[in-house]
Computed example of a mutant assay.
Amino acid sequence: MRPILYLFIFLLGTLSFAQGNKAFEQANTLYNEGNYTEALNRYTSILEEGEHSAELYYNIANAHYKLNHIAPSIYYYEKALLLKPNDKDILNNIAFAKNMTIDDIEVVPEVGFSRLIKKATNIMVFDKWAKVSVVLVILFVLLFLVYYFSQSTSKKRFTFITSLSFLILALIALSFAFNSYGLEKKNQPAIVFAQESQIKSEPNLRSTEAFKLHEGTKVQVVDTVSNWKKIKLADGKMGWILNDDIKLLKDF
């Protein structure tokens, strides 16, 4: 009975995949014909069915861009970048989309030792650093066993130094893994969707206005209080924005 059930599930999954591909192709055809509104509706329906891919987000962003929807186009380009960070087509198109935004925010570059640590940490993602640390620990254990049971003085010296080196590298990789995890957890990007949003100095409507932001601007969410989110800009400015004025990029 179980093999029949597995076969049924497999066939159902294959059918759903085929239907999804057909819908995606139909949406692409509409887009190529210049029917951007209908293409967007088709892409969105695929998304609502639970399909998520860089290609789908990229095409949704393209349709929004053609319709001059500033915030949604940047939002979906950014979501595509989360799945394909170095894709040249996405990077090229998002640059065009960002030219439509009003806010001109100067990026303050990181300097010093913290910049070097962050750059080194970002060489790999958290899980890869964790795997590297596990491999290095295994190598340390194996070499230490060779050192322990070896009778040769020269071999003992070599395996001891090498195993100690692997242990140090394992600890470094582990620290990078934890640092990468921390950076990823803190990284909560969002896009402003309100045409114009008043950024407050405190999380309430009675507080003074710190500055204004407009649709399409990318921010970092650093805190949440009730229906307010504390945001940080690339230039270091901080303030409070209403939840409804932004959309988090990591909501899949």
Score class of each variant (00 low, 15 high):
86 N>K: 12
129 W>T: 01
166 F>H: 01
160 F>P: 02
170 A>Q: 05
136 L>A: 05
215 E>D: 15
100 M>E: 11
200 K>D: 05
69 H>K: 05
230 K>S: 13
63 A>I: 01
195 Q>A: 09
142 L>I: 13
27 A>K: 00
169 L>C: 11
50 G>D: 12
175 S>T: 11
213 L>C: 13
227 N>W: 07
10 F>N: 11
61 A>R: 00
29 T>V: 11
183 L>Y: 08
159 T>V: 04
250 K>D: 09
164 L>K: 07
60 I>D: 00
210 A>S: 13
18 A>G: 14
41 N>K: 05
154 S>V: 06
208 T>D: 14
146 V>N: 03
15 L>W: 14
203 P>I: 03
247 K>V: 14
152 S>T: 11
186 K>E: 07
57 Y>F: 15
156 K>Y: 12
132 V>D: 03
202 E>F: 11
14 T>P: 09
224 T>P: 14
185 K>N: 12
83 L>H: 03
213 L>Y: 03
9 I>K: 10
133 S>R: 00
39 A>Y: 02
151 Q>I: 04
133 S>Y: 02
100 M>V: 06
195 Q>S: 13
120 A>Y: 04
194 A>G: 09
122 N>G: 04
110 E>W: 10
61 A>W: 00
141 V>W: 09
184 E>P: 11
126 F>A: 04
64 H>G: 01
126 F>K: 04
144 F>A: 07
156 K>Q: 04
203 P>Q: 12
165 S>A: 10
51 E>F: 15
161 I>A: 03
226 S>C: 09
113 F>T: 12
57 Y>P: 01
105 I>Y: 02
35 N>K: 09
39 A>S: 12
18 A>Y: 14
183 L>H: 12
163 S>K: 00
104 D>P: 03
227 N>L: 08
77 Y>H: 14
173 A>K: 01
189 P>L: 05
19 Q>G: 12
97 A>E: 01
227 N>H: 13
108 V>T: 09
147 Y>G: 07
10 F>G: 06
232 K>N: 10
169 L>T: 05
44 T>C: 10
160 F>K: 08
66 K>M: 13
241 I>H: 00
87 D>N: 13
196 E>V: 06
81 L>W: 05
22 K>C: 14
219 V>G: 02
226 S>W: 10
171 L>H: 11
153 T>Y: 03
160 F>A: 08
65 Y>W: 09
228 W>T: 01
75 Y>V: 00
99 N>I: 08
45 S>F: 08
